[in-house]
Amino acid sequence: MSIVTKRCGVKFTPPSIVLIYETKETGRVRKRVIPVRNFSQYSDCSRAAERLKHHIRHGPYLEMVPLAQLERLHVVLRDHLRGLSLEQSLAALKGPDPDEEDLNKLGDEELARRKEQMDELFQRNRRRKSDPDFVYDLEVEFPEEDKRETCSWDEDQSDDEF
């Protein structure tokens, strides 16, 4: 489908996924409201996201929307059905503060899950050997040390600076 996805969000009443996209041919920006059916506070969000992604009519429009994002939107929807506020739901989705989280302390499964999340970015930014512009010994010069500013991580021993 020749569309470019602009934004994808969620609406509580009626429960739906809202998609803003541009049609390539006409260049017009359109909105598509996709109702989320058979979904309750007990539903499995990742399954529901997958179902939507492969929906016979809506699926093609969601091609550019990552599955993980669809899953997150369903979690927000589910949290709403459970009586949580939007703020609570988003805070929970964000997870622990990355600056304070000590991954050395996680169990195997949890660590594997966090690594998987990090791998998304890794794969996205990855330069492969098969890429035409691949350079094995890629050297990049960065500003000299004395031309760089002090990193906030060094400012003091306390963690209050954030």
Partner: peptide, 23 residues
């Protein structure tokens, strides 16, 4: 890469900015 990370300097160690993803 515009920032200084003092640890290496304090210990007198060479320091590099790298990316395993883009190489």
């Amino acid at each position: 890469t515009q920032k200084n990370f003092n640890f290496a300097k304090k210990q007198g160690l060479p320091f590099y900015f790298v990316s395993a993803a883009d190489g």
